[in-house]
Design a protein around this nucleic acid. Sequence first.
DNA 1: GGGAGCCGTGACAGCGCTGTCACGCGGGCG
DNA 2: CGCCCGCGTGACAGCGCTGTCACGGCTCCC
Lengths: 338, 338
Amino acid sequence: MADVAERAGVSASTVSRALRGFANVSPEVRSRVELAARELDFAVSRHASSLVTGRTGVVAVLVPTLNSWFMGSALSSLGPLLRAADMQLAVYVIPDLAERAAFFEQLPARRNADALLVFSFDLTEEESARLDDLGMPVVYVSQHADGRPSVYVDDVAGARHGTRHLLNLGHRRIAFLQTAGATGFAFSARERLLGHQQALTEAGVPLDDSLVVATETDGKRGVAEALGRLLSLREPPTAVFAEQDELAADLVWTLRRARIEVPERMSVLGFDDQPAAEWFELSTVAQSPSEMGRVAGELALELIDDPDGDHHRHVVLPTRLIPRASTAPPPVPEKDPC
Amino acid sequence: MADVAERAGVSASTVSRALRGFANVSPEVRSRVELAARELDFAVSRHASSLVTGRTGVVAVLVPTLNSWFMGSALSSLGPLLRAADMQLAVYVIPDLAERAAFFEQLPARRNADALLVFSFDLTEEESARLDDLGMPVVYVSQHADGRPSVYVDDVAGARHGTRHLLNLGHRRIAFLQTAGATGFAFSARERLLGHQQALTEAGVPLDDSLVVATETDGKRGVAEALGRLLSLREPPTAVFAEQDELAADLVWTLRRARIEVPERMSVLGFDDQPAAEWFELSTVAQSPSEMGRVAGELALELIDDPDGDHHRHVVLPTRLIPRASTAPPPVPEKDPC
DNA sequence: GGGAGCCGTGACAGCGCTGTCACGCGGGCG
DNA sequence: CGCCCGCGTGACAGCGCTGTCACGGCTCCC
């Protein structure tokens, strides 16, 4: 910076002011400084300036994985948003409990950011409290966190709408399929089941625990076993609401193999609307992770500028039902049994 | 740090040495310092220390998107690797040419990292030269970069093996399906076509340009149109080698709609082995982006420690042919026409 | 016409840490 | 017994920038 100052014939202070676009610099000096900076290929050292200002220019995000449609979409929209605000995106991938423990172990070292976005983690109250002590805004994404800023989709309403759609088609025996130990998505899972049950109750359909099944292992095998449990009931369901599209896709795949036509003999409804949904012509409840990423990023930036400001600290995003070809009325109309 | 020093009854210098694990600190003092640091919830400020050492503790990665199986897998394996080396992962998402221009515009500002991983970008020589000037190791991932460290999969050999598999099944009219303006994957696309053509030539099958088609728009529409061009040839192909699994999946989907059985009347071969391949029971040429991410990360770390060292600067990863249910002999055996 | 006020600029300290050097102390060797 | 060496530690400068204050010159107004 001293070199730039010398070349532009001004002091280092003026260079600093000019390069940061402060108002009190004469236009002529400013352009001279900018020219000199470009000629010398100079850029301020973030580290040196954060040392003084206390701002790091970094937004940290905590994700369970990057290898999923949800995270990919969310972060892809977050990236350009942060770039526009001249912020860096630092990603911490925490795939398992060991990494999670390690992360919290080294927590103090993580103070090197201006804000933290926590994606889809079911943190304990103790863990959240430790994050509070970090002294930076923490935004919870894809989960509701009591008393803390969070951005999430209205899973309850989404699931309610989904189940209503099945009810409207005439289904009465509707199963709900959940994943095994979903890494980090437990919050949504609970909410979606809740919405499903609300819709059933609204419609006067009694809840039946045997219709709520969870896969015990990952992948198609787990889905097949869960399906087996449903098909061996005294009165099997005519429709299955799968809590995620991946699950729904595996289910359709399994049903096809078993020569059970979808939707003629079994309706399948998904949740998410990821690309796989289109391949399987899945009716599904759509959410938009890219919007979620965007909104969460904006909220974080607002909180950085004004930590105590009166922002929307709980943003609830809507869902939309997307009917495709995997849902239809049940094979034998129950309303009019002859 | 001064507080820690006081609490431990030593000087700041000693605290610094103790916390960084230097050898010349007595065990007794070290444990006293560590205790004091923990009690005060202290962690060294990365910014202050990089100001002195010149090392930032950050590895930057440049990706076209995060919303793809490839990037998700690669970065998911890179993340924990960097964490283990006590490095941060800074992600720059560059979805389009405008963002790319903006990135290079602000390049000097990006010096705030110890290494840069460039994923799947077809950079111009001029752009690469500018990255060289950054003064940090740059590793090119999923592409071959002459004279610069790079990690990539052997696309040529992979495609050759794929095409050989189709030839061995008896196919002679084999189409090659490419994507439109693939964002950033142009390098692989060229290599795969090359490998395909090598295998044909080896087998004495003449090349036919009308069998190489590219989608003109994204999604199923583009695939349908490309398929249309193939089906309206005087002598249509009996097999299609799609350069990516997504494309292959769309193709199978389109063929099913058109009641052209796969593989009975048309074989389809993919490339990548992403989850969609399993859903469509796609025979495919597998690559492992997670291994690529891991290897690239290790290479970057080595180059940071020893920029001129004698490392494997070109790592070529293997592919594996995964036969599933989308390939079979052609409907009318050509070898034995009666 | 002189004082008040403002604008643009420079000098300087200090952000929190690390590298270097200097120092004291104990042990080994001649 | 004295000297040298090496180990563990402390003092201090300075990494590159920014916030604060002081200063000179100008305009404006009474």
